[in-house]
Computed example of a mutant assay.
Amino acid sequence: MIVDDDALVRLGLADLLDTDPGIEVVAQAADGVQAVELATAHRIDVALMDVRMPRMDGITAIGTLRTVAHPPRIITLTTFDLDEYVYDALAAGADGFLLKDTDPADILRAIHLVAAGSAMLHPAAARRLIDRYHHTARAATSAAQQRIDRLTPRERDVLALLAEGGTNADIAAALGMRESTVKAHVSRILTALDVTNRVQAALLARDAGAVPGADPYPPGAA
């Protein structure tokens, strides 16, 4: 689903997505209210979500979409990389954050990655996120470590590789597991840490020092 109040932007994105045989555009919305209605009526796998829209903005829409019966994975796609947009979108549950100047091939790649359960951040957004968490890490370390302590040693191994940007396939290869086993571990990790997606889990791992010296989520990584 494409969600943007600019009809020309929706048309351009639809034309781009139509070039990929693995992607089907099933709905287009002009604002957050319409996006929620369409996500209720259709089974949406991934939504490309603008931020500034009338009636209901993208950040509010992300939170609302998380409550529908089959919540889509969400990539925020906006012209603005303002700090509050990056933080608020990810805190609301977005699985990715891209700018509209992102290379078209990377937009297509992001959709496939997010649909498969991974995440993708624009390099500028990732750097802003890294800078913020470097400044606030000391205050967050204790609370984050308490959540990490809920995990088994094997789950911590998976989390460490996830926080370094590893896909399920990467983690499976590194730890000698089946990819399905990694997916099960990731699901349990998200539940135990009380987060909604891999980006939030990676940030929590960084806060806790589970990945010493590593960026919370490498730019453009899955």
Rank of each mutant, 00 (worst) to 15 (best):
L13N: 05
D15Y: 15
L16K: 08
D20E: 12
P21T: 07
E24A: 08
V26H: 03
G32K: 02
V33S: 11
V33K: 13
Q34P: 03
V51F: 02
P54C: 05
G58D: 06
G58F: 00
T60V: 11
A61L: 09
P71L: 09
P72R: 00
R73Y: 02
I75K: 00
L77K: 03
D81R: 05
D81L: 00
A89G: 02
L90D: 00
G93M: 05
G96K: 03
D103N: 15
P104G: 06
L108E: 02
R109W: 14
A110N: 07
H112G: 08
S118V: 00
M120I: 14
L121G: 00
H122Y: 13
L129K: 06
Y133V: 05
H134W: 12
R138H: 14
A139F: 10
T141E: 14
S142A: 15
S142T: 13
A144W: 03
Q146P: 03
D149C: 07
D149L: 15
T152Q: 12
R154H: 14
R156H: 11
G165C: 05
G166E: 04
G166F: 01
T167N: 07
T167R: 06
T167F: 01
I171Q: 02
A173N: 14
A173H: 13
R178D: 15
E179A: 05
T181C: 08
K183M: 13
S187G: 14
R188K: 15
N197R: 05
R198P: 04
A202P: 00
G209H: 04
P212R: 06
D215H: 08
A222I: 07
